[in-house]
Design a protein around this nucleic acid. Structure first.
Lengths: 230, 230
DNA sequence: CAGAATCCCATTCGATACTG
DNA sequence: CAGTATCGAATGGGATTCTG
């Protein structure tokens, strides 16, 4: 039998590679199974345990607990309490954790070029919003400013486009006034319209777009997928 | 015994997450243990099996074989034969595989900001070269053009700086004329000089720098680490 | 050298049940 | 709701051996 379990407290990280390379260290931080997806789900604001779990079908409570612990001890995630009165446990990203967004974007921009990528698989609302920030063509976006409401199933986000940047705020059930609204039952319903440039009123599309028609068109034109390989 | 092995041909990928998100798919492609480091080692040109293996202490022949197979079937790696006469098996990146460099850079740029990152760990020559490309400040680099020879243990690279970009070519034992040369037994010996701005002639430094002193200083000034967090 | 084939242990995972 | 505890099954990976 093994007498010691030396790795109790010290060197939580540095498990895999003994490598000073930053990319190798990054993989030790977020390269474990599920870790990156947890970070992704928190990228647009803090969430509760069961909320994250529900967004990641296939992850077990045990694994989610472990990943959150590791991410917290790495300084990527923080546990917070939501604003009183109804104080509930929330997991959120640290400032540095949030600084991982360009990295997630770069991963997506690269992988999506593969012919093996399957965009018909399920997608979470957060992943959809992040994909829009990833595929936004900044030079085009700089010429436009607007607000847009995105309703993806039960999730609602307020998007603001200004100065070539697109920001998102998670919304409750409160009413908002925006220039445009996009509403569909699932994130996948957005993809043909945003990236395939299929008109929203095409038969079969389950997405509803409201607002000035030209503005919606101009908005959609801001998003361009990278070229496929081969 | 198992009668079927259903996953022979179909759906090699999509093992883990059933997620249309590009970042999730990227993690299925290169997020397996060791995969990213294999890609990293090939980033500066094709290598042979045992060469890669020697660069990644801890990886077993079995695992390296598996990873190379998976990367090949994903279109990231290609097997090639080196130029005749001495034709040996080489593994190299596809064009798309090589397009993963910004991604590796982004990973490194982000992770290196952690206080938990340990730059005293061993580092491969390739990782060192890539780190220079990552930390290069383009605006400064645009004002400079030069060639430099890097000798890291037995490995030799010819670096060319021009138009704000730094390119590397792996060298054999052939002689070259360059503006600068940097020579040290290990990659780690470069780090204090390149990133800590320690003068190469400081006692204890095991690095030898030759060439015009001011030029060497200007070159070293091109590399700036991102700020640590906290 | 470049792997393929076995063997076997350690870890990890997922499912289920349980708790404050 | 937010986890913890336990357990069996699957997987992964190291060591070793063998081959062209």
């Amino acid at each position: 039998m093994k007498l010691r379990k030396e790795t109790e407290a010290g060197e939580i990280h540095g498990k895999w590679y003994e490598d000073a390379c930053g990319a190798a260290f990054a993989m030790e931080l977020i390269g474990e199974r599920w870790s990156l997806l947890v970070v992704r789900e928190l990228m647009l604001g803090g969430r509760r345990f069961s909320d994250i779990r529900a967004s990641l079908p296939g992850i077990s409570a045990k694994v989610l607990t472990e990943r959150l612990e590791r991410l917290e001890s790495a300084g990527i995630v923080v546990r917070t309490l939501s604003e009183p009165p109804a104080s509930v446990q929330l997991y959120d990203l640290t400032e540095w954790g949030r600084a991982a967004e360009p990295l997630i974007q770069e991963l997506g921009r690269w992988a999506v070029r593969s012919p093996l990528h399957d965009p018909t698989l399920p997608m979470t609302p957060v992943a959809l919003m992040l994909s829009m920030r990833t595929m936004l063509v900044v030079e085009k976006a700089e010429k436009l400013a607007l607000t847009a409401l995105f309703e993806v199933g039960q999730d609602r986000f307020l998007g603001r486009l200004e100065d070539g940047a697109l920001s998102f705020t998670r919304l409750g059930t409160d009413a908002v006034e925006t220039d445009l609204t996009f509403k569909a039952p699932t994130a996948g319903d957005f993809l043909p319209v945003l990236y395939g440039k299929v008109p929203p009123d095409t038969p079969g599309m389950r997405i509803e777009v409201t607002g000035e028609r030209d503005l919606a068109g101009a908005f959609i034109d801001l998003f361009v997928l990278p070229p496929k390989i081969r």
